[in-house]
Amino acid sequence: MKSEPNISVDIAGIKMRCPVMVASGTFGYGEEYADLLDLSRLGALVAKGITLNPRQGNPPPRIVETPAGMLNAIGWENVGLQVFLEEKLPFLKRFNTPLIVNVCGKKEEEYVQIAERLDDREGVAGLELNISCPNVRSGGLSFGREAGATQKLVAGVRRVTKLPLIVKLSPNVTDIVSIGRAAQDAGADGLSLINTLVGIAVDIKTKRPKLTNITGGLSGPAIKPVALRSVWEVAGKVDLPIIGMGGIMTGEDAVEFLLAGATAVAVGTANFVNPHAALDVAEGIREYLEENKIQDVNSLREYGKKW
């Protein structure tokens, strides 16, 4: 009898039944997709980024389609921590799926306060610090662009939480490895790679940018090679588990990330195209392992080290 390959993984102490989670900002707080797929089958769910207070976000147009991708400049529209705890968390707790809360802020104190209030909250499996959002004027990427700022912020949050701390990095930096190292030195437990790439689309009729925010974050299949390069570079130099993301549409795409050094992957833009994408990707990984007679998904990340 053929034995089923193991596809469960452990990211910084977060035990996932499969190595596929849904990326922050692409899955709301789960409610929107609950009719379309069984949330209990996801590896983990990363909630839409929350700030201390509610934020209205950027004026529209906020999204534009580009070749094999899209630009977004949502600008952190979210319900704020209080409403998240009162209205969103109770729903998410109903599913037997680890919940990772994406935390955003303009100032270090904001990240710290949110982390403090989530620390021993039932139903929260981990935090993902967003220091890589390109669509807000202050905060976000301003912490993730430079190693010193990253280290200070992560250390500040580390002091107030025992929860697994994942730091989401931006590819819009000179040296992503140095940022990853800074996060590790400050006590991070894992890294999410990558957030979106900053881009522009222009309307040649109006001679204006298509997004009101002018720039937006590029996601989708178009960014997959950049994401893979980032994962491979960081995996070779930083000793933290990596959640790889950027343009994953299929199981094959995910396997590329796992081979490059990721422990798990996140599906983002693909959710918009195929609401079932995360589960399809997990199934695709399992099929790849079976076809290639690989017993454990955790053995894939060793390959990238030899490249």
Binding site: T26, I63, N72
Partner: peptide
């Protein structure tokens, strides 16, 4: 213009 169509992405506000 819409992203997800189900209210998750906040792109079409």
């Amino acid at each position: 213009r819409m992203g997800c169509g189900v209210g998750a992405c906040l792109g079409c506000v």
